[in-house]
Design a binder for these strands. Structure first.
Lengths: 236, 236
DNA sequence: CGCCAGATTGATACACATCAATTCTCGTGG
DNA sequence: CCACGAGAATTGATGTGTATCAATCTGGCG
């Protein structure tokens, strides 16, 4: 387990498609994060949005698509920290540089907000700060839940928790037999859950055998009796 | 691994020793968290400060001692989320109730700040919000680092990272042969690092054999050649 | 001095990692 | 439209790091 497991290198530089600014947009899904003046940018699948260590000049909000935030050790071990999707924010930091990299899992469209403009806006309008605060609090809480997953849950429980989380975020938890999207690869899932691809694959296969889930195509999964999954995911 | 590992139940109710309020205190260690009007409270070792699910009415700042923040599953598996010490804050949440419990590892003295007073203060003085923001950002970054530890590091690496973290927080990293405090039990360490007591114990013993560390008494450890430890802890 | 919770150490089990083929998927070009 | 190729996913065989079970040891305290 010690040595490198799935080295993931990425030497592609982001390509930014500058679009006309669309300041103070209306409200689409996600949290009630305040609306700042923003620029639209797009990234192709697997392109890097920023690298760990880059100057943390901007904050992002996902308009569409899925992003992955990664930390990588010197010897190539990778841990995915979050999968922001439509409505989610990322790239906020109290430091000068990002402490993880951000990559496009699917083609993505983002709102890019300069750090300075946020700081100025918050300065002049304290109410805005609350939105940022709420966002950070939520992310911290999710992080703490993920601690429990990474530190104390079995492979099956991690997968179940992951699927339930996805279903919830896609509003498909209550749909019986609802089909959820799995936009990311097995490697991404493994690196998010602290497992290997093989274990992820085997566990998903076992769940299919047991009738917990079924799949038509790769990249989507149907939940059969989601209660059983929630049971496994157990939460607190 | 599935079933309960080290069930930890705590049915003690907090005992609060109300002291004269000491509002707007001077600056002692830790981050530059703004000073709000606060009440001093003390807790004996192993007393619970609040339970997960309790009404999140207050925010805390550690004056002295060490606290542990815990999440526990139904079947008794526990994950410690952080060990706040002097200067650190905890208990902030965007929700109505706490999403983890807080317990005194050692006897502790805390500053207790009502949630409302923070919100009012931030409302009237936007500058204060920045301090809270910085605190949350820092905690989120630590959380992401801990992801890497829980998801991708070996037992030896986790212990090394833990000791280096402690040494750094106690400003003993550069002291050659500096002695650091280990105020928490092996169980606490295990539940923080996602291991078992036995593995923690074995790993520490091995490190002693290898001359990485040495110990005079339980509860304190001397680092012999901290570079080797930092090497193991590898970070990003 | 003897008790007892916590820590250490030992023997063994097992969940997941690792190594190694196969088999799918899906984009591409004939 | 189908054959082809390549990367991704699955499946199998085996290894190993850590959990589990079980004593034994240690150190603080009445």
């Amino acid at each position: 387990m010690n040595a490198m497991m799935h080295p993931t290198t990425d030497v592609m530089r982001p390509i930014e498609l500058r679009r006309p600014a669309a300041p103070l947009r209306g409200s689409d899904g996600g949290t009630d994060f305040p609306k700042f003046a923003s620029t639209r940018v797009s990234f192709l699948k697997d392109r890097t949005i920023y690298f760990e260590g880059d100057d943390a000049s901007h904050h992002y909000r996902v308009v569409s698509g899925t992003v992955r935030l990664c930390k990588v050790t010197e010897d190539g071990r990778r841990q995915i920290v979050a999968f922001p999707t439509a409505g989610d924010c990322f790239g906020w930091t109290g430091w000068d540089s990002y402490c993880h990299s951000a990559e496009a899992v699917t083609p993505v469209v983002l709102e890019k907000i300069s750090r300075r403009s946020i700081e100025e806006a918050v300065q002049s309008n304290p109410g805005l700060g609350r939105g940022v605060l709420a966002m950070l609090s939520d992310q911290l809480m999710s992080a703490h839940n993920h601690f429990l997953l990474l530190g104390r849950m079995t492979a099956a429980e991690r997968i179940a928790a992951f699927l339930v989380e996805l279903a919830r975020r896609q509003d498909r938890l209550d749909d019986e037999g609802g089909t959820i999207d799995l936009p990311m690869s097995r490697i991404d899932i493994a690196d998010y859950l602290g497992l290997t691809i093989e274990t992820v694959s085997r566990t998903i296969s076992a769940m299919k055998r047991d009738g917990l889930i079924s799949a038509t195509a790769l990249g989507s999964i149907r939940l059969g009796r989601s209660e059983a999954l929630e049971q496994l995911a157990l939460a607190a």
